[in-house]
Amino acid sequence: MSKRIYLFYGTESFLIENKIKNIIHKSIPEDQRDMNVITYDLLNTPIEEIIQDAETLPFLADHKIVIGKNAFLFTGQKVPQKIEHQIDRLEQYLEQPVDFSTLIFWVPVDKLDERRKIVKQMKKFAQVESFSSLSDASLLDWLTEIAKKEGVEILPEAGQLLIHLVGQDLQLLNQEIIKMATYVGKSGLIDEKVVQELSVRTIEQDIFALIDQVANLQIEVAFQIFYDLLKNKEDPIKMVALLARQFRLILYSKELQRKGYSAQQIASQLGTHPYAIQIALKQSVKFNEQQLQNILIKLAEIDYEIKTGLKDKVLALEMFFFYLKNPTFFP
């Protein structure tokens, strides 16, 4: 197996980028990288040209790195391309690679086509590594390690909240941890309060806050959040969709909890992050199932009325909040 040929595949591009950066850092001095780190797109460049470059001596250096992105030739996926790859040139190179070049192929999908001869040869002669999406537990461990590298600690609850608010984009999560680490200082602690104060605000985050206020019958505060969202040019139709999604999650979580499911089991059943289920279960205490069903029916009506022009977008949502404020809704 060659230590100079790599095949990285998977959808976690941030991890793949970091892996490649580490290889570059260890292999080539910074002042030699401009001329000796070459990246190709295999959708536009035939494999034989990449091999030819790898076989060409480095420019005033001992080593070079050649990277081939979008290497779909290792998959069964059909992609729009106007070129034919001479796979035999890669097969020949695998048998006799040069020692002054590192060759890296990047496949942005989770599965290789194991039936292909070239994939079998890559597994025999190259270093093949998968970078699939991280599980919830692995993602939390990854966040903990990133925080340690920044010289701080993040509480598990804070990590779950950050994932819930920001999503599973590793690059964005990494940026958020760096920002929070700067805020708390070396050996500092990132807790839920820090995450709430510093994390990138999203419309989803404001929708959660809005629903909390509705659940607590603080309709005036809900109106204020709604008007703040409008000031930020958020589309009322999108708000309706997000409100419906969250209330649906609350209803499903409440029903499954009644049937004896744990929060973890509910998360698995609904394909949702466990922290989102924890929030939904907290919010569900303020509603009964019939109320939640009524809310979803009302939101479906509002969606129809807005999209067919029967009601103004803003007025429709204002009337929805007044509907929730009606004493007959909360007996």
Rank of each mutant, 00 (worst) to 15 (best):
residue 130 S to Y: 01
residue 71 A to E: 04
residue 306 I to N: 00
residue 108 P to C: 12
residue 284 S to D: 02
residue 320 F to L: 11
residue 6 Y to L: 15
residue 199 S to D: 05
residue 226 F to K: 10
residue 40 Y to D: 07
residue 268 S to Y: 00
residue 150 E to N: 13
residue 3 K to L: 10
residue 73 L to N: 01
residue 320 F to R: 03
residue 29 P to G: 12
residue 156 P to Q: 08
residue 65 I to V: 15
residue 235 D to M: 14
residue 22 N to R: 15
residue 191 D to T: 04
residue 158 A to P: 03
residue 245 R to Q: 13
residue 165 L to W: 13
residue 289 E to D: 14
residue 21 K to Q: 08
residue 170 L to Y: 07
residue 266 I to V: 13
residue 19 K to N: 04
residue 192 E to G: 03
residue 220 E to G: 05
residue 291 Q to D: 04
residue 261 Y to Q: 06
residue 259 K to Y: 08
residue 146 I to E: 11
residue 35 M to C: 04
residue 310 L to K: 06
residue 307 K to E: 02
residue 277 I to Q: 07
residue 20 I to W: 10
residue 300 A to D: 04
residue 223 F to S: 00
residue 205 Q to T: 08
residue 71 A to M: 05
residue 66 V to T: 10
residue 321 F to G: 03
residue 215 A to H: 05
residue 313 K to N: 12
residue 62 D to P: 04
residue 80 P to D: 14
residue 250 I to M: 09
residue 274 P to D: 03
residue 128 V to D: 10
residue 23 I to M: 01
residue 50 I to K: 00
residue 12 E to K: 00
residue 249 L to E: 01
residue 34 D to R: 09
residue 142 W to N: 04
residue 99 D to M: 11
residue 253 S to H: 11
residue 273 H to F: 14
residue 69 K to W: 08
residue 4 R to N: 14
residue 183 Y to G: 03
residue 45 T to Y: 03
residue 273 H to M: 02
residue 283 Q to G: 10
residue 47 I to F: 01
residue 9 Y to K: 12
residue 102 T to C: 06
residue 301 E to Y: 12
residue 92 Q to W: 06
residue 75 T to P: 08
residue 158 A to D: 06
residue 227 Y to A: 06
residue 293 Q to W: 10
residue 288 N to R: 12
residue 183 Y to F: 13
residue 197 E to W: 02
residue 24 I to E: 04
residue 102 T to D: 04
residue 56 T to G: 05
residue 157 E to T: 08
residue 141 D to I: 09
residue 26 K to Y: 01
residue 216 N to H: 06
residue 144 T to F: 03
residue 161 L to A: 06
residue 11 T to M: 05
residue 108 P to A: 10
residue 10 G to L: 09
residue 327 P to V: 05
residue 191 D to E: 05
residue 321 F to Q: 01
residue 221 V to K: 05
residue 257 Q to Y: 10
residue 101 S to C: 12
residue 80 P to I: 03
residue 292 L to K: 11
residue 331 P to G: 12
residue 56 T to E: 15
residue 196 Q to W: 01
residue 296 L to R: 06
residue 244 A to M: 12
residue 318 E to M: 07
residue 291 Q to S: 05
residue 140 L to H: 05
residue 35 M to V: 09
residue 185 G to Y: 10
residue 189 L to K: 13
residue 301 E to F: 15
residue 193 K to W: 02
residue 147 A to I: 02
residue 57 L to N: 07
residue 249 L to K: 01
residue 208 F to N: 03
residue 290 Q to A: 12
residue 253 S to G: 11
residue 56 T to N: 06
residue 125 F to T: 07
residue 21 K to M: 11
residue 230 L to D: 04
residue 84 E to R: 05
residue 34 D to G: 13
residue 40 Y to S: 13
residue 290 Q to H: 15
residue 4 R to K: 14
residue 147 A to N: 00
residue 85 H to K: 08
residue 314 V to K: 11
residue 101 S to N: 12
residue 239 M to A: 08
residue 196 Q to I: 12
residue 108 P to K: 10
residue 93 Y to T: 09
residue 156 P to Y: 11
residue 89 R to E: 02
residue 144 T to M: 05
residue 90 L to H: 09
residue 161 L to V: 14
residue 49 E to S: 02
